[in-house]
């Protein structure tokens, strides 16, 4: 009998504690582990040191809910929908510790963490001021072979990582059909890994397409099935980013109702959230757009 790591989302906070360093998957407005983030708010897990390379609404609502002590990021934006309002206010008032790094170096740091190395080298960042402000992350070293100056990028070893997969089996073997971003890298670097998934499947389903298994079960500590678990970010090819919901969020914030939004998330279950925010009609639309349009033809040669 193989191990069954599945848990209901209500048990998430058995695996994540206040004060921990937490790496979140996804990138841009794509595939952030949003259901898990909402559950952290419900469970009042706070004082978190969040790492999110291309951060967006997942970090934004955690900041809005007062759950974040520090944020390590290379970009933090709601993109077309504007600057992230809670992040912006927290940054401008100094309410949270911001550590702005360069995005490619953050990938290198996860690779170093996965290999249990203190650092990995990379080439320099020209005249960027980011390394000078972050000497705990970038140090100049001399290559022992060529003598050239390189940057030693400090490893990330987050205490917990949460990523959202398309499907996983009860052992935690997980496949991500959506943009992979650095989900696999953060799972390899973290000490505890939680996979949320659109669909819990039998191991035989995973075995029908094993080349898509990006995260092996031995890395994974808990598996949570939660459909539309990346909403309002996308999970291609199942659903697109819910731009309509981003507009609603930005509007609520502009109307001074940002904290009311977070309170509402805290008071409802994930099932209630899905029915309230991404109801049946919207789920059909988001799903219908997710197959994409046919490519434009190349010009005749």
């Amino acid at each position: 009998m193989t191990e069954d790591k599945t848990i209901p989302i209500a048990r998430l906070s058995e695996f994540v504690s206040s004060g921990q360093e937490l790496a979140l998957g996804g990138a841009w407005l794509s595939n952030h582990p949003m259901a898990a983030v909402r559950q952290l708010l419900r469970d009042r897990v706070d004082d978190l040191r969040v790492i999110s390379t291309l951060a967006s609404i997942e970090a934004e609502i955690l900041i809005a809910g007062g759950a974040v002590r520090g944020l390590t990021f290379s970009m933090m934006s709601l993109e077309a929908y504007g600057l992230a309002p809670s992040f912006r206010r927290a940054a401008e008032t100094g309410a949270i510790d911001l550590r702005e790094l360069s995005g490619v170096a953050m990938n290198v740091a996860f690779e170093a963490g996965a290999r249990r190395l203190p650092y990995l080298p990379m080439r320099d960042l020209g005249g960027s001021e980011i390394p000078t402000l972050n000497e705990d992350f970038y140090r100049e070293i001399e290559c022992p072979y060529t003598g050239e100056r390189l940057l030693a990028v400090r490893a990330f070893e987050p205490e917990v990582a949460i990523v959202h997969a398309t499907r996983a089996d009860p052992q935690g073997n997980a496949q991500v059909d959506a943009p992979l971003s650095n989900d696999a890298e953060i799972a390899r670097a973290a000490r505890t890994v939680i996979v949320t998934c659109e669909e819990l499947v039998d191991p035989q389903v995973i075995a029908t397409n094993p080349s898509s298994t990006h995260i092996p079960g031995f890395l994974v500590d808990a598996v949570i099935e939660v459909p539309f678990g990346a909403h309002p970010t996308s999970h291609i090819p199942r659903y697109v980013t819910d731009g309509w919901n981003f507009v609603e969020y930005v509007d609520a914030y502009a109307a001074g109702e940002g904290s009311a939004e977070v309170s509402r998330l805290r008071e409802e279950s994930e099932d209630d959230y899905r029915e309230r925010v991404a109801g049946p009609e919207r789920r059909v639309i988001l799903g219908s757009l997710a197959t994409g349009a046919p490519a434009l033809d190349l010009a005749p040669q």
Partner: peptide, 27 residues
């Protein structure tokens, strides 16, 4: 090549692509 739209660009990019990469592979 895809037609641009706010809600459909990501899905269209994926639909006609030759592969999918992680950030590490891109890096």
């Amino acid at each position: 090549p895809i037609q641009l739209s706010v809600s459909g660009a990501e899905a269209s990019a994926f639909r006609g692509s030759a592969g999918r990469w992680s950030f590490s592979e891109l890096t």
